[in-house]
């Protein structure tokens, strides 16, 4: 793994001039974390997601209203001390409803996004590495699922899963979202498998699945991590999209999608019905995407923004960079 070794050298060089002190043992995880925290937007994103987790799962216990409660004295009242986000037409507490929706979005997004990327990475890497018939069959499935529009398929399926738990949305959303990542991974794996370090491993008798897990996937780790974060956002969007048309989460349960759908019907007069769920959704997705962007910078040893303020002389830096950045996409023979 050239990426790992060089990243270590890079950091060791900038913090420990002697080079062979205890600093050398700095793990890649620590290094990435350090770079990540140096990125202000990404750190803010992480803080927001953590805060949203807390408010979504602890908030309902602090709030005196449950999302099913009806306050018969307050119908469609604006935000106040008793109802932080106002109330709906039927007197439900908007804050409790939003947090209920946020819980779903968080769980669906995190589980679904990781599930999607893991599945995509395995399928794509197998297709790219094994080639031949494995590639043909897997690529055919990738192509088939790509021409099946996720939203349309899940909408058609919606009458079938209507009575069931909303958890079923997670595998369903993942089942229709893995293809593009898989395709990119496949292309990368195809060009990686002819590289020297993969050939070396193969000639040493390392089995194929091990090469995929130890050599192919770590080499495209940054792409996978960025993709996983993007998939978290995509899964959240997928659920909200379905729920907006009433195909996802069903009443009496709520999701941010159903809340926005009801909110937009009174767009002029009762803004809090629209603004709060919309803000929850947009801020959550924004934070997730900011984390993804920060991770990209943290994982890419060349990213200028990820470097520490201590700069080595220019010539030295030039020397150490090229090894890290051999392009994997272009190798014209």
């Amino acid at each position: 793994m050239s990426l790992n070794a060089n990243a270590l050298v890079d950091e060791a060089g900038s913090t420990d001039p002697i080079g062979d002190g205890p600093q050398v043992s700095t793990g890649r995880g620590r290094l990435v974390l350090k770079r990540f925290l140096r990125n202000r937007a990404a750190t803010i994103g992480l803080v927001i997601v953590v805060l949203m987790f807390l408010s979504a799962f602890v908030g309902p216990d602090i709030d005196q209203w449950k999302y099913t409660d009806i306050d018969f004295e307050n119908f469609q009242t604006p935000p106040s001390g008793a109802h932080w986000f106002g109330t709906t037409q039927t007197g439900q507490d908007m804050f409790a409803l939003c947090m209920r929706g946020l819980q779903k979005s968080l769980i669906i997004g995190l589980v679904g996004g990781v599930l999607t990327t893991a599945f995509a990475a395995l399928v794509g890497a197998c297709a790219g590495y094994y080639g031949r018939w494995a590639d043909r069959i897997l690529s055919w499935f990738i192509d088939l699922f790509l021409v099946l529009p996720s939203f349309l398929m899940l909408s058609i399926l919606s009458p079938w899963f209507r009575g069931k738990t909303w958890m079923i949305l997670i595998p369903l959303l993942a089942a229709f979202a893995w293809m593009i990542t898989a395709r990119i991974v496949r292309a990368q794996a195809m060009s990686l498998k002819n590289r020297e370090f993969v050939s070396a491993a193969r000639f040493m008798g390392v089995p194929g699945w091990r090469i995929i897990l130890r050599h192919i996937l770590p080499n495209i780790a940054s792409l996978l991590i960025i993709d996983a974060v993007l998939n978290v956002a995509a899964t959240i969007l997928g659920e909200v999209n379905l729920s907006f048309f009433g195909f996802g989460v069903q009443a009496p349960d709520v999701s941010l999608g159903t809340l926005i759908d009801t909110g937009q019907q009174d767009i002029g007069s009762y803004q809090w019905l629209l603004v709060f769920p919309m803000a929850c959704l947009v801020v959550l997705l924004l934070a997730v995407n900011m984390i993804g962007d920060g991770l990209r910078d943290a994982l890419d040893p060349n990213a200028q923004g990820a470097k520490s303020k201590v700069r080595r002389p220019k010539a030295e830096r030039r020397d150490s960079t090229p090894v890290l950045t051999e392009p994997v996409t272009v190798e014209v023979d």
């Binding site: 999209n241 907006f244 937009q264 767009i267 959704l281 947009v282 995407n289």
Partner: peptide, 14 residues
């Protein structure tokens, strides 16, 4: 683009 990413189409449309 981060902001647009954070908006479902219906949010953007509204």
């Amino acid at each position: 683009s981060l902001l647009i990413f954070a908006m479902p189409v219906f949010t953007l449309a509204i």
